[in-house]
Structures are given as structure tokens and as C-alpha cells.
């Protein structure tokens, strides 16, 4: 069976759905990183509790449970992990976004520089 015959077996709604999904997910992959803060601070949460808040431009290596988190040259990565899948290690260096290690329940997120004051403060 040729690939064109396979395509002939799809309905109009199949094709609309495919184009829609590719467009929405593709566009969000491209657009979301533009709005993510680059550099600044790194938050490391374990079990939904904030454990560390570190500046991204200070080189450092921290062991967290079974993980080794490495900060270097404005980027962060999980250098090593004892989890079976090692998705966090494969993700490599990031300077925006997040790394999640599910088995160890570790979330590493990159935040913007010196959190700008939100809402109304005492002087206004």
C-alpha cells in the first residue's frame, strides 16, 4: 500500500485536526520561550518546597538528593541523576524554562532578574 492510498483514507476532519494541532503546538513552542525570562535567578524546588534561590551567573555545583545540579556560564543543567529515565540529564543546559525530575520530585525553573515589585507597594 502506498502512502498516498493511506492519506486517501483520512477524512476532512482528520486533516483539519492535524493542521490545527501542529499549528497550535508548533506556535506555542516558538512563542512561549520568547516570553520566558532569560537569565536572572534559578529556583530549585523539591517536593513542592523552595529549597534554593541562586543567581544564574555564579558558577556552582550543588548535590540535591540523587541529583547533581550544575550552574555555569549563565546556564543550568542536571549533570547527573540517579533516576531511571534520566530525562532531566538529557535535557542539557538551559537558560530559560524549566527542568523537571519526576522520580526525585525536583523542579528547576529560571526566573527573571530581581523580581520586579508587583501590585501596589507602601509608597504608592
Amino acid at each position: 500500500m502506498r502512502i498516498t492510498e493511506l492519506i486517501d483514507r483520512t477524512t476532512l476532519f482528520d486533516r483539519i485536526l492535524l493542521v490545527f494541532l501542529l499549528f497550535v503546538t508548533g506556535a506555542s513552542i516558538v512563542l512561549i520561550p520568547l516570553y520566558l525570562p532569560h537569565g536572572g535567578q534559578i529556583r530549585i524546588e523539591v517536593n513542592n518546597k523552595l529549597l534554593y534561590k541562586l543567581p544564574i551567573n555564579e558558577d556552582k555545583t550543588i548535590p540535591i538528593g540523587g541529583l547533581t545540579v550544575e550552574i555555569k556560564a549563565g546556564k543550568v543543567r542536571v549533570a547527573d541523576s540517579d533516576c531511571p529515565g534520566k530525562i532531566c540529564v538529557k535535557q542539557g543546559w538551559i537558560d530559560s524554562g524549566a527542568i523537571i525530575c519526576l522520580p526525585n520530585r525536583v523542579v528547576i525553573t529560571v526566573e527573571g532578574t530581581a523580581a520586579a515589585p508587583k501590585g501596589v507597594d507602601a509608597t504608592t
Binding site: I32, L36, N48, G97, A98, I100, L102, R105, V107, T109
Partner: peptide
């Protein structure tokens, strides 16, 4: 596991 909506939305 992880109640961190932002990091999940990024992925």
C-alpha cells in the same frame, strides 16, 4: 507530583 503549573506549561 509537582504543583508547579508554570514549569508544566513550559513543557
Amino acid at each position: 507530583f509537582i504543583q508547579n503549573l508554570r514549569s508544566i506549561l513550559i513543557l
